[in-house]
Amino acid sequence: MRAIPLADDLFYGAVSLEHIDGGIKPWRIPYRDLALFLPNGIDSKAEICAGVRLRLRTDSTSVIIMFAPLEEAARMDCTVDGALHSTVALLKGDSAAPFTMLPGEMADLEIFLPQNTGMTIIGLRVMSCAEFAFFPDQRPKWVTYGSSITQCVDARSPSYTWPAIASRRSQFNLTCLGFSGNCHLEPTVARMIRDLPADFISLCVGINVYGAATLSPRTFKPALIGMLETIREKHSHTPLLVISPIYAPDRETTENKLGFTLIAMREEISQTVALMQNRGDRRIFYLDGLELLGLADADHLPDGLHPDASGYELMADRFVDRGINALRDKGIFL
Rank of each mutant, 00 (worst) to 15 (best):
L241C: 05
T219Y: 10
G211V: 03
I201F: 00
E233Y: 08
I201T: 02
P222M: 02
R282N: 15
R251W: 00
E255F: 03
S244P: 04
R232W: 14
I231E: 01
D195M: 05
R279W: 08
S270F: 13
T230F: 00
P217C: 09
A198P: 11
A248I: 07
R283S: 03
E233L: 13
R218P: 04
L203S: 00
T238D: 11
F285M: 08
T214P: 12
L258V: 15
P217Y: 12
R218G: 12
T254F: 13
G259T: 00
F200W: 00
N278M: 08
L228C: 12
L275T: 12
D195E: 05
L241P: 06
L275H: 03
D250M: 09
E268K: 09
R283H: 06
Y286H: 06
Q277C: 14
S244A: 01
T219Q: 08
H237W: 12
E267D: 14
P239D: 02
I225V: 15
Y210R: 02
V209H: 00
L228S: 11
L258W: 06
I246S: 09
I201C: 04
A213W: 10
G206L: 07
M276P: 03
A198V: 14
M192Q: 15
I193P: 07
A264D: 09
T238F: 11
M265I: 10
G259D: 02
T253Q: 00
L196M: 15
K257A: 07
M192P: 09
P249C: 00
A223V: 13
S202K: 03
H237Y: 15
I207C: 04
N256E: 06
D199K: 03
A213Y: 04
G206P: 08
M227Q: 14
L275D: 04
F285H: 09
G259H: 06
N208Y: 08
E268T: 06
H235N: 14
E252A: 07
A274H: 09
T261N: 04
A198F: 13
A264H: 10
Y247H: 14
